[in-house]
Amino acid sequence: MAKETSVLNTELEDLPPELRWREWMGRIEAVIFASASPVPRGDLARVVGQEASVDLLIEDIQTDLNDRPYELVAVADGWLMRTRTRFADAIRAAADVGDQHLDLDEFEVAVLASIAYHQPVTRDGLKDIFGKDISRDLIGRLRAQELIATGPRSPRAGAPFTYVTTQKFLMAFGMESLRDLPDRGELEDAGLAS
């Protein structure tokens, strides 16, 4: 390839404002589309003009996508594109997506949810919640999928590890922060927590 030190023209001063905005929107959508992981704001800001508001550009893109089967969403540390959940069945019927979706059974999801609410929590702490041992295997599977990570040691004999949830956990469940977890009060009302 020819040696090329082309610097991306971000200001686009030769374009009229309307077209310039469109071009910026296109760039942001393209960058997010091309990325497998959420794209942080800083990266997006690099492809548009100094004065352009990434937030406003994103809002306009989201409006454009209103009637499309995919959407642009904010997750833990940036934005990503994903198909709308109501098309999940169609996607599953058409393609083998086994490697992509989380392979969790109901109990694993329950343990994961407990970790999310009670973190940092040890295996002993989880045992108190569920009334039975939580196997190292199960914890290992959640760790292998990077949904949880080790937190600070617990101040108890043997200094056992605690577990905490990760950014990937937030992403996998479409949350921006732990505050998107259902309110504990609501869970209690639904009889799902005590």
């Binding site: 973190q119 940092p120 990570a149 080790t150 937190g151 600070p152 040691r153 617990s154 101040p155 200094a159 590890f161 605690t162 905490v164 990760t166 732990l178």
Partner: peptide, 12 residues
């Protein structure tokens, strides 16, 4: 009590 490499969790 966190050691190098441990996540701190939301409170920490």
């Amino acid at each position: 009590l966190a050691r190098a490499g441990d996540r701190l969790g939301p409170a920490g």
